[in-house]
Design a protein around this nucleic acid. Structure first.
Lengths: 191, 191
DNA sequence: TACCTAATGTGAGCGGCGTTCACATGGTAC
DNA sequence: GTACCATGTGAACGCCGCTCACATTAGGTA
């Protein structure tokens, strides 16, 4: 016999909140991400999420951490082990594409300095910078790894945000790809 | 006889709102910027600002436009007519410093795609990119101006945001300066 | 099996927010 | 001097983050 009323306890509200938050971000942008909306979508009272997240920022941090892992997956999917500048440009383009395709999530990931939740969120960030470092090490054995991967992250991150903010036209994917390729080669050719 | 009560009409509420908003940003960060707080600080009813700004975003756009002009001034103050890579690096450092010193304003400037208020805000943005273009033209006469200044803007913008978000340590100004110099030279030396 | 406790969800309520609207005020043009 | 129009007021709506006393239930213990 199917129970008509939902059970008192949700089951796994903690992860349900993150899923709901991701959906809300996709559907309505950053502005749509409210704890109350998350609770509504999870079919739960407005105060329930506070059992699992101290405040809104804590939930946002959890969402950001998921975003970092998805971004890392997206990058490795573009090229598992890049070993040339062209491979590297493909990864750079993936970074920018991720930002353009999921702007609200990307903004959430980089909206605040992540003082709190340093364990989870900082760790997730480190995945990306470690991946970047390993690429640079493989492509440019003699180079100053820290300097070069910082510069590379900066170009890519800057390109992502400038597209997101409409400073660079992002409607034609081929134009985006050309820009990213040009920037990466400008930075790395001749090294 | 001094009038005890403030006059019914403010005088120039339009610009007073922008000033109040800038103060609130400096004092309490992005979160402190609310239309009601702006009205309070201007000594006016919560609904009064709506006579001058259609909604919160419109005020934010006006604030962002002021921010762009202040950023442009800050850059030209760093170096009026850069003609070498070192001059250029000084301008780049000024860009990053502006972001670090006025994080809330910087975030507001790049928080949303500026579809609306395209006149004012886009124009203010163009001041910066035109300045960048002129620098690149002067320093690298034969180069592809658009590509090079886009790449340069991206590095600098990316460095600014990565510092702002705590991905790069920003507490020691000399470390920031070294990073920016290294990145600019990596991108432009040998051109 | 029966209880007890700790974890989890509820519902009401606080103050703040953005926004709207009917109304008050007063400078300006005729 | 009067009529008009821009500007400011105050109350109100619904949404928000957040808190707290209370209800429910899962899971360990006797």
């Amino acid at each position: 016999m199917p129970q008509a009323t939902s059970p008192y306890h949700h089951g796994d509200l903690r992860v349900a909140c993150v899923h709901a938050a991701l959906e809300l971000l996709e559907e309505g942008g950053t502005a749509a991400l409210s704890l109350r909306a998350v609770a509504r979508r999870a079919g739960v009272a407005p105060s329930a999420p506070y059992r699992h997240y101290a405040d809104r920022d804590a939930l946002v941090s959890a969402v950001a951490a998921v975003g970092y892992r998805q971004l890392a997956d997206y990058l490795t999917a573009a090229h598992a082990e890049p070993s040339s500048v062209d491979d590297l440009a493909a990864v750079a383009l993936a970074y920018v594409r991720f930002a353009i395709e999921r702007p609200a999530l990307f903004r959430v990931m980089f909206s605040e300095p992540c003082d709190r939740d340093s364990g989870n969120r900082v760790a997730a960030t480190n995945i990306i910078s470690a991946y970047l470092d390993s690429i640079v090490r493989r492509c440019f054995p003699g180079a100053d790894v820290a300097a070069l991967s910082t510069a590379l992250w900066a170009v890519v991150h800057g390109l992502a945000f400038l597209h997101l903010d409409g400073k660079l036209e992002a409607s034609r994917p081929s134009a985006v790809a050309d820009r990213v390729h040009a920037a990466v080669h400008a930075l790395l050719d001749g090294r």
